[in-house]
């Protein structure tokens, strides 16, 4: 496929599908959770066994897109970018705190790295506590009470953070285009992600 020179490839097809399926699974989990625990919604929807079944299977499937996606070299490169916090990222955080205009960033800024790490950690914890609640003979009852407690509060936190994620996306059409089509405007990339390099190692090394 020929790409116009004013565009940069930000996300490959594999990466976009990992994002899309993870988002769909997570939103389904949140929606079914609301139907199980928000009383007016529960009264409206009912069908408890069906809703529980959908919730459990979408929850179990939550890490699957990422695991399958790891076969993609582009996704592995982005995982390595996201898991590395460099001086550039500390500078970005300082710039946000002092409301400075110039905010240096590689392919991903520090906020996006924190969000990605939050997502991975939250998925693992919500999945682990969910398993404890589902496989009731796996652990003593006290664990299950604790798991339910963590699951409830973390679910609420995930809902809040996800709303924040969607708000950020709504404010930046170019970032959305990157996730929708894979391509972003070169000038946007130079403005928002000046330190973005083709190879993650180089991105990290230049500001060692």
């Amino acid at each position: 496929m020929r790409r116009p020179p004013e565009f940069l490839l930000r996300f490959t097809r594999a990466e976009r599908w990992v994002h899309r399926t993870t988002a769909a699974l997570m939103l389904t989990c949140l929606a079914t959770a609301a139907c199980l625990y928000v009383a007016p919604l529960a009264e409206l929807v009912g069908r408890r066994r069906l809703v529980v079944t959908v919730h459990i299977w979408c929850g179990l499937a939550l890490p699957a897109p990422l695991l399958v996606g790891l076969t993609s070299r582009a996704l592995r490169a982005d995982v390595s970018r996201l898991s590395r916090f460099t001086d550039v990222d500390w500078a970005w955080l300082r710039a946000v705190r002092t409301r400075a205009a110039e905010r240096p960033a590689g392919k991903f800024n520090a906020g996006q790295k924190l969000y990605a790490q939050w997502t991975l950690g939250a998925i693992l914890v919500i999945l682990g506590t969910g398993l404890l609640m589902w496989l009731t003979h796996l652990a003593p009852p006290a664990w299950r009470t604790g798991a339910t407690f963590v699951h409830d509060w973390l679910a609420a936190a995930i809902a809040v953070v996800t709303v924040g994620h969607i708000r950020m996306a709504l404010r930046d059409g170019e970032a959305r285009r990157g996730m929708r089509t894979g391509l972003v405007d070169r000038r946007w990339a130079e403005r928002e992600h000046p330190e973005w390099r083709e190879h993650p190692q180089r991105e990290a090394a230049e500001r060692g």
Binding site: G121, L124, G146
Partner: peptide, 17 residues
Amino acid sequence: VVLGLLGLGAAGVAAGP
């Protein structure tokens, strides 16, 4: 961040009751 969340989750399960 990931490890911290895992730790917090485990602590939450223990202290949850």
